[in-house]
Design a protein around this nucleic acid. Structure first.
Lengths: 247, 247
DNA sequence: AAGTGGTCTAGACCACCTT
DNA sequence: AGGTGGTCTAGACCACTTA
């Protein structure tokens, strides 16, 4: 009676024969899973990278040419992505990359802030010494990468840290929800970048967070996490406004 | 005749950056939307009604016979339902109705409790007099129906009340999340029923909630809502244990 | 009325499990 | 190897939009 398989073991390439990794936003495309899953990954990264812009119409015929497969796997991929809120599908009217406005972003962050801070609280309550050490390592990694100014690397390090926190919270449902639906916010980050002052304060906030988690102080961790989200939101909205003011 | 005023603001589909309202779990199937959407509704209600049991394998060929359409619309429908967590799809291995265990339910309720209490707080903060009156009416309706013992009617009335609360909170993202993912819990209610003592306490909890919302007391409303979820969870788990003990 | 583009059907193809 | 059942292709069909 188990609804979840813990899928951490990236099976080694040869003779694997293991269960193929399900199509989770963060994972690499397994070499032998169906075309629609691989197309899904490709469209997803094209959206997240900003190659397919928010609001852009996604015509099946274009996509068949772009990715060299026929209609059906494209359609299936789009359905999956609709489940992640990256695209919107209107019956008989086709798909488009989800269009975002300020209200939508604010709402997303409000939800995300509450979910993430819940998981962060649980993380603080439940973390074992081994897990704490792992968090410290990931945090160190972030700090290290943050000095390089490489946006992609910074965001990966940041993501790894947050994912580790989720895992420690031992609530796969919440983790899946966050993984599934909030790639959209990441995609906006990829497009609009990160305020340079924000880079420093993120490090500072992470340090505070680590300290609270290390003390198993759940409510403090929750509080910091909430604030962390709020300032991420403010920073993003600010940059978006700036970008739309000076095109 | 039940109060089915379809009072969903049929959003003018004019480049609406908000949440798409096509094929939302609670709505009726439009007469002219595609087959896959209608199949999706039918499978969904069959799951919610318990006709397709948790864990049950969903073979495409069976479903084509059952619903009299060919493979592709079935596949599309299953993809959509995967997005709602009602079914799980493993690549090359097909779909099955999501299997649930106690840990899964506990996690679902934890997430749901936090989202719902957030929206309830916002509702208390934002409700206008007109909206308050509407809530009172829905609450009265619930009380009325509760005395009849008709489970389906009770659940509909309850759902209408909660949906009204969500709408007043003016966070369509949160509302969509709750609508999308928590039909599963409703389906379990349909299968396992409602403790008879629970019926009374639900009414009492609703009254408390209304009172707090009427006073625009956000934190009290949030707190009551959280408790409301927790007791719903306890009641459900209890009934499931009882059912599995005496088959 | 024609065109664009989403949706559906039938059957071939292929991955995985059984013998 | 054979069987079961998921996946893919090609083309017909049909909803909606333009002129």
């Amino acid at each position: 009676m188990d609804a979840f398989e813990s899928r951490v073991s990236l099976s080694s390439d040869r003779t694997d024969a293991g269960v193929p990794d399900t199509n989770v936003p963060g994972e690499e495309p397994g070499l032998s899973d169906p075309i629609y899953a691989r197309i899904c990954q490709r469209i997803r990264s094209d959206i997240l990278a900003g190659a397919l812009a928010p609001g852009q119409r996604l015509k099946i015929s274009d996509l068949t040419r772009r990715y060299g497969v026929s209609q059906m796997p494209i359609r299936e991929a789009l359905q999956q992505l609709q489940g992640e809120w990256l695209v919107t599908i209107l019956p008989n009217r086709g798909a488009s990359v989800r269009k975002v406005d300020e209200a939508f972003i604010t709402q997303m962050y409000e939800i995300r802030g509450h979910l993430e801070s819940l998981l962060t609280r649980r993380c603080a309550e439940l973390a074992t010494p081994t897990e704490l050490q792992r968090l410290q390592e990931l945090q160190a990694k972030y700090e290290c990468v943050a000095t390089t100014g490489n946006l992609a690397a910074i965001m990966t390090a940041n993501r790894n840290l947050h994912r580790a926190i989720y895992e420690i919270a031992r609530n796969p449902v919440g983790t899946e929800l966050l993984d599934r639906h909030f790639g959209l916010l990441r995609s906006l980050r990829n497009i609009y970048g990160l305020g340079s002052s924000r880079l420093l304060s993120v490090s500072a906030e992470h340090r505070e967070l680590m300290e609270a988690i290390g003390r198993h102080d759940g409510s403090r961790a929750e509080q910091i996490s909430r604030r962390h989200c709020d300032s991420a939101r403010d920073d993003l909205l600010e940059r978006m406004r700036a970008a739309s003011a000076t095109p």
